[in-house]
Nucleic acid binder design. Structure first.
Lengths: 230, 230
DNA sequence: GTGGCAAAGTGGCCTGACCAGTTGAAGGAT
DNA sequence: ATCCTTCAACTGGTCAGGCCACTTTGCCAC
């Protein structure tokens, strides 16, 4: 008898989520052993196979580790939703990392299907519109770069770019550099984005890579000057 | 009765690998329905629960989609935003991302100060020792790549590489392909690492970049081919 | 102490069964 | 003939109970 007939989802998912919730809540600290399969089954009023399926799902998801004959343990390096501000990279490290990753993303995006490339063009359109309307274009700027990373069609790369932008915008230190953007720089920024979008839509991978590289170089140059002149 | 007591791994992993191999090989095109659980069980000479566990593992890994009452289908490309537990990237996405980031890290490491480069050499030495001692070299392998990323002197890049390795070893289905490393591949792996370490210690950035690229290409090739011989 | 051995506990896997949803084709109504 | 209903086959979803191999633990002899 499933413990609650209210939810239509598959049983092992409900069980897995329940266990994951315990881990996230701290009821099951990292490294600790969770109850035996038989006991979990009895406690949750489900069968042992269902518990096993849930545990396998959690194992593949990287939340727990199953040691045969011993027990199931909460994984130590469990990905926490909270980020530690301590070792956050500095703004220039982030920018350099972007110069490694994003040109390649742009090149791949240029080789993507037309639909994906159209999404990049659309993101650029929104950014241009925001700028014309005088709205802060920080969000649409980020959205543009993220659209390119997503168009590249690689989840891992998209996640990396997303993380870099988070590192870049979150810390207060980088906020300071953000303010250093002059109206002229803002205009150039838009023009550089246009070059990138054009190359991607045209399917020219080499041009897209070069345009992205130029753009990021310009951003770095502006930041270096901003720190002096402002 | 397990079909062959030759492998000590858990049964559902072996089954999952076998199915994943069929998908990778193209025997099961994206969108196609794979055989029923009962038939798979009979064909592979295992019980249905074991097949179910394997299918759940593949589902969490994002390789297949299970439609109740209908069948199990090979997923075409894009991972849905469905993923509640974790939308971790697939193993090949991770590998591709590494091919974007790590060669650049190797090049920068080669330009680093002697102390940082010595740390890379040391990490390689530990890995070689572990391999000689017959110890599992997965950890030292990871440590070697992380050492290079850290020697590159960019916090953001080091963090990216660390994240990619976590994605690769902890969460996803890559574990399924991980154990497909033959002794020959393990030996080549060490040789490739040696080439990387040598170039970095010598301060030859171009050679380091090329060696890292060769290494990752070899890893990808091994993963694509693997899983058949056993 | 200390080393070894046995029992308890745990995951690993199997057999067999029943239920619920999907699917597609047979058969009736229009 | 065409459309709709119905129903049987098929598929995944879940449960129950059982046996085995391995790890852990604690007792006992040394």
């Amino acid at each position: 008898m499933p413990f609650e007939p209210i939810e239509p989802r598959r049983l092992f998912r409900r069980i897995a989520e329940q266990i994951a919730a315990m881990i996230a809540r701290g009821d099951l600290p990292p490294g600790s052993r969770l109850p035996a399969e038989r006991e979990l089954a009895q406690r949750l009023n489900v069968s042992r196979p269902s518990v096993r399926e849930a545990l396998i799902a959690l194992e593949i998801a990287g939340l727990v580790e199953v040691r045969g004959g011993s027990g199931v343990y909460v994984r130590n390096g469990a990905p926490e939703p909270v980020a530690q501000p301590a070792d956050a990279p500095g703004p220039f490290d982030v920018l350099e990392a972007r110069m490694v990753v994003e040109p390649e993303c742009a090149a791949r995006a240029a080789r993507a299907e037309p639909a994906a490339r159209a999404a990049v063009a659309e993101a650029f359109g929104r950014m241009a519109a925001a700028r014309r309307a005088g709205r802060p274009d920080e969000d649409s700027d980020r959205a543009f770069h993220l659209a390119i990373a997503e168009a590249a069609g690689n989840t891992a790369l998209a996640r990396i770019v997303g993380g870099l932008w988070r590192d870049q915008t979150a810390p207060l230190a980088s906020r300071l550099t953000d303010l250093a953007v002059s109206p002229a720089r803002r205009r150039d920024n838009l023009a550089e984005h246009a070059a990138i979008a054009t190359a991607i839509v045209a399917g020219d991978a080499a041009a897209a890579r070069a345009a992205m590289r130029r753009h990021l170089s310009a951003v770095r140059r502006a930041r270096l000057q901003g720190l002096e002149g402002a």
